[in-house]
Design a protein around this nucleic acid. Structure first.
Lengths: 113, 113
DNA sequence: ACCCTTCCGTTCACTCATTGAACAAACGCC
DNA sequence: GGCGTTTGTTCAATGAGTGAACGGAAGGGT
């Protein structure tokens, strides 16, 4: 489904290490090989990544996935959105925790089975 | 799939308002009617909920879903687990935010297209 | 040069959770 | 009793996700 989260992590890992294979990346992303492949192709089609031949000029199987300038901008934009979203999540989380603790105190112990 | 999260929310909402219909509960849970039904039946089978006839003693379609004592204990236990899990999530989130901000500062602006 | 192994990206048939339209039961109302 | 409404229940269809299998290409050994 190519969520924002997956997109961001993919861009980030590729930037950190362009020589990652799809299998390695799949491991880092925590998704399957098939989905990783689909994700990379989508990013390439959008122009956010470019697949360069790794060693020489011939058709080779091992690629280097490099961020394009537009890919770098996209990653930065995603990061900004993430900070905002994560902050909101954190707020919600704190609220939930407070509510849970309130509930726990209301029902101190139900000893009997 | 009946995740912990769904279980907890279901128990919570049912406790707050036992007269909820499955459709209303589905709306609160953010999942489909079918899944809500599946979830409720699973909770009933586990003895965490009991479906009481709403008004009179005859077979009626509208139920009241009440927490059993064991359901109350389960909900409390889930709450405890949630507090721990959510705290960990919060820590991870803070870490991520810090990392994202570091990245943003590293790449102040890519103006050119 | 040749073969064989290994590693890569790519594909696609399968699985399985999820959905929501359709159905049946049971009520209130007239 | 009849009708419309509301409820729980079912299940065919959908769609995302998986990972085994494939073919291409490099490397190593002889």
């Amino acid at each position: 489904m190519l969520t924002d989260d997956l997109r961001f992590k993919a861009l980030k890992h590729v930037q950190d290490n362009p020589q990652l294979t799809q299998r390695e990346l799949a491991g880092l992303l925590g998704v399957s090989l098939g989905r990783t492949n689909y994700c990379l192709q989508a990013l390439i089609e959008k122009g956010l990544l470019k697949a360069a031949n790794f060693r020489n000029s011939k058709n080779k199987r091992a690629y280097m996935y490099k961020l394009t300038p537009s890919g770098l901008r996209e990653k930065t934009a995603l990061a900004v959105r993430f900070i905002k979203r994560k902050e909101l999540e954190r707020q919600a989380l704190l609220g939930e925790i407070a509510e849970l603790q309130r509930e726990l105190e209301q029902q101190p112990a139900e000893e009997k089975a």
